[in-house]
Design a protein around this nucleic acid. Structure first.
Length: 543
RNA sequence: GGCCCGUUGGUCAAGCGGUUAAGACGGCGGCCUCUCACGCCGCAAACAUGGGUUCGAUUCCCGUACGGGUCACCA
């Protein structure tokens, strides 16, 4: 067989050589040890939460080493494509603070960054493989393949195009010519010289040394539409785009033997691989892969629910690097990106997604933010997802910020907000639109409540600091038969009508409408004396 | 089914031949406290299983079970 003639016959359209591309995309000029990583999704229109895993690892590894992190759109399968999905994807990641150094909207020197635009490149390398006798056209139809599979199933053999089952491996040039002339569609197959009895050792950055069997199947390199399969595209792209570390899901581990073979056949240096376990969720008693339909599977869920992007990132970091939480405790104010991310700290097994833990992480993240920061993020969220609330909280930014400042900044900050959605419940009572008397002061008679409130209104001074404020409340309570000291009260509950806590609750319910609120003295300072007094008066009418 | 990967409390996980087997979330109990939110203290809770190797195995090896992945002209 004249391989050169076959190559020309199959690829008359390909005029460039592999050398041309090797020169066009030279080794990246980066400092020693700099990693080049990539995220290579197919634009199906859904950004999976699980995708954040490899993305974050890739991004950290690249940027921590002074390298390059790029986005490559894998759109070789036109059937699966969703219009515009890749732009949404970029936007979503941007939202989470993940930016690509090179992408379809920010072309670098190694583009195009969209596989559908790289057709010629793949075909050049495919042609080269044909020239070297490492690839051949296969005219088997779907029906042929179905029969092959059935036969192999019957014989309980490994399914696939290999060994005695290959029909098209040794077609003559003449035969190929005739089939081509007859207009028969074909795929280009890799001529594997692997032996399934051979074991090869391979080192994955997180899984360690794994032993795999050599690939002996003649996989498809180019589909009948002339576009490459993932495997060829992976080899050609990651080589030409000079990727040093391929970070991808565990599902690729099984095709690794083929990739190793392919890189070798193409004369490429194998990149380092890091296969990441799938993110799971618990369904009943069993672990399941987090699937598209699950709550929290899509990245958009976190955005609309109002989880701060930082929270989601921090949560994923805790899953990714077991020492992240320790680091965070030691460095509460540091940017997440200062964390020394390490591949060694990654777990080889899959972890379970835990929404409750995310909530806890999120509370902590929000509690560390400044009031300004919270205000900005909250209003940005509300602008998109709760316009009415947005209008309310942005009417007077300083007022809203003052509210958000309550219990913030100290070493033991309040942790009220898990998501931005929580904000309305937490601080709605500050605004006339949401203020209402919700809770009741059960178990006390109207006269006592009114008397306490009246006395309180008489002596309230907005300039009082917390301790003065509280001693006034105690005094008033004592005057009306409420014990100023809780311990004392507990020792002798029958000699009092109640205790100072009850007196506070009268004021609290009157002013906030609820039995629970942040520090009342601070709340009233923000509400202003007039508003507080008006609420107290109104409350008395409801008794 | 073949091949591959994995298995420490309910969850995330330290551990890398000798430990009272960390810590975090969650749960429970308590303290603090004018309520809440914090904070603090405590409790319950784990090395899947059977064989080896070894003076000694959670740790190393083999088997079994369980879970996951993969076996496409999808990525």
């Amino acid at each position: 067989m004249d391989h050169n003639a076959l190559a020309e016959l199959l690829f008359p359209d390909v005029s460039k050589t592999t050398d041309y591309y090797e020169n066009l995309y030279p080794k990246r000029d980066l400092p020693e040890g700099a990693k080049v990583t990539r995220f290579a999704p197919s634009p199906t229109g859904f950004v999976h939460f699980g995708g954040l895993y490899p993305v974050l690892v890739s991004e950290r590894l690249a940027h921590q080493s002074g390298g390059v992190f790029y986005l490559r759109i894998e759109d070789t399968d036109s059937k699966r494509e969703v219009e515009g999905a890749e732009y949404d994807l970029i936007k979503v990641f941007e939202n989470f603070g993940i930016n690509f150094d090179e992408s379809i909207v920010r072309e670098g020197k190694y583009g195009p960054y969209r596989q559908s635009k790289r057709r010629e490149i793949y075909r050049t390398y495919a042609k080269e493989l044909v020239k070297q006798g490492k690839a051949y056209p296969c005219f088997c139809t779907e029906e042929d393949m179905r029969q092959l599979r059935e036969k192999q199933e019957e014989l309980k053999l490994t399914p696939g195009y290999y060994g005695e089952f290959v029909k098209c491996r040794d077609l003559t040039l003449e035969q190929v010519k005739n089939k081509l002339n007859a207009g028969l569609p074909y795929v280009l197959r890799f001529r594997s010289d692997g032996n399934p009895d051979n074991k090869i050792k391979f080192t994955d950055l997180v899984k360690g040394t794994i032993e795999v069997t050599e690939n002996h199947i003649d996989h498809v390199l180019l589909k009948s539409d002339g576009m490459p399969t993932y495997h060829l595209a992976h080899a050609v792209d990651d080589h030409l785009m000079r990727t040093t570390h391929v970070i991808r899901g565990e599902e690729w581990l099984s095709s690794l033997p083929y990739h190793i073979q392919l890189f070798s056949a193409l004369g490429f240096k194998l990149p380092k691989y890091l296969h990441i376990s799938q993110l799971m969720k618990k369904e009943g008693e069993v672990k399941k892969k987090l699937s598209k339909r699950d709550k929290g599977a899509g990245m958009s869920y976190y955005i609309s629910e109002g989880y701060p992007a930082e929270s989601v990132i921090e949560y994923v970091m805790t899953l990714l690097n077991s020492n992240f939480e320790d680091w965070r405790r030691a460095n509460p104010t540091e940017d997440t990106n200062s964390f020394p991310f390490s591949v060694k700290k990654m777990s080889p097994s899959g972890s379970l997604f835990d929404l409750v833990k995310l909530g806890d992480v999120s509370k902590n993240v929000v509690s560390r933010m400044t009031a300004d920061d919270v205000y900005n993020k909250l209003s940005k969220w509300a602008e998109e997802f709760d316009k009415e609330f947005y209008d309310v909280i942005t009417r007077n930014p300083d007022y809203t910020k003052a509210i958000l400042q309550i219990g913030r900044g100290g070493s033991k900050p309040r942790k009220d907000l898990e998501t931005w959605k929580d904000a309305k419940d937490y601080m709605g009572f500050f605004f006339p639109e949401y203020f209402e008397f919700i809770d009741k002061t059960e178990g006390f008679n109207k006269q006592d409540i009114t008397a306490c409130l009246n006395d309180f209104a008489d002596c309230y001074d907005i300039d009082d600091e917390q301790d003065v404020w509280f001693s006034k409340v105690k005094e008033i309570g004592e005057k009306h038969g409420f014990c100023p000291n809780i311990k004392e009260y507990k020792a002798n509950p029958d000699s009092w009508k109640g205790n100072v806590g009850d007196v506070s609750s009268f004021i609290r319910v009157a002013v906030t409408g609820k039995l629970n609120s942040p520090d009342l003295c601070a709340v009233m300072k923000i509400l202003g004396k007039d508003e507080s007094m008006e609420r107290i008066n109104k409350f008395k009418e409801t008794l």
